[in-house]
């Protein structure tokens, strides 16, 4: 019980310390900030060990057999090569795992984007121009694609395409902005409820 009350007071104090930033930078905010960064970095180390390294490398190396066991040496060696950054002489070796990761990311990104975004979005836009909705959708998609076409200088009449596109883009951003602000308000309500209910017991 005492620990629970102590925890609530520490959480409330840190919440107020973070909120004090709204006034200006101050020692309370600095304390909360450094504590947060430090604790989260420490937590990150434990997390990487407990959820990545141990279950995906160490435990699997013990439990797997044959090729599936020895293939684990590849990521292990690549990981160890990253540690060469500590030595000035061999630091260049760390570029190998970085290049490997970047290459894998870019390669997977292409097929992932084609399958996950390009084809489904194209399919959803191939519509007959028989309703106002369909017309708006097709014009919006085509002009927006052309907005991101960089091989042509849009001047004069063709500049209208960019103007139409930016209207569609901004309407989309406006909707997204409003939607996200509402989500943030709910986060604020959550913290205020914690302060007023769990801590001060006013509500």
């Amino acid at each position: 019980m005492i620990l629970h009350i102590l925890g609530t007071w520490i959480a409330a104090g840190l919440t107020i310390a973070i909120f004090s930033f709204l006034y200006k930078d101050n020692p309370f905010y600095k304390f909360a900030e450094h504590l947060y960064v430090g604790v989260s970095a420490g937590f990150g180390v434990i997390y990487v060990w407990a959820f990545d390294l141990k279950p995906m490398l160490v435990d699997r190396f013990i439990s797997e057999h044959g090729v599936e066991r020895w293939i684990l040496l590849v990521p292990a060696i690549l990981g160890i090569l990253m540690l060469t950054r500590w030595t000035e002489k061999y630091a260049y070796i760390s570029r190998l795992p970085i290049a490997f990761t970047v290459g894998i990311g870019a390669g997977l990104g292409i097929t992932g984007s084609v399958q996950g975004f390009l084809l489904p979005q194209m399919q959803a836009t191939l519509l007959p121009l028989t309703t106002i909705n369909n017309v708006i959708l097709v014009i919006g998609v085509v002009t927006t694609i052309l907005y991101f076409y960089f091989s042509h200088e849009f001047k004069g009449a063709s500049n209208i395409i960019l103007r139409v596109a930016i209207v569609f883009i901004m309407v989309s951003f406006g909707a997204s902005f409003g939607y996200t602000v509402m989500a943030r308000i709910s986060l604020l309500i959550g913290r205020m409820f914690f302060l007023l209910s769990d801590w001060l017991h006013i509500i």
Binding site: I18, D25, A32, E33, Y36, V37, S40, A41, G44
Partner: peptide, 16 residues
């Protein structure tokens, strides 16, 4: 530098 992998921890660090 590396700050932290935590989302808002990183935001607090960059703000600081």
């Amino acid at each position: 530098p590396f700050l932290t992998s935590d989302q808002f921890g990183y935001a607090a660090g960059v703000d600081g």
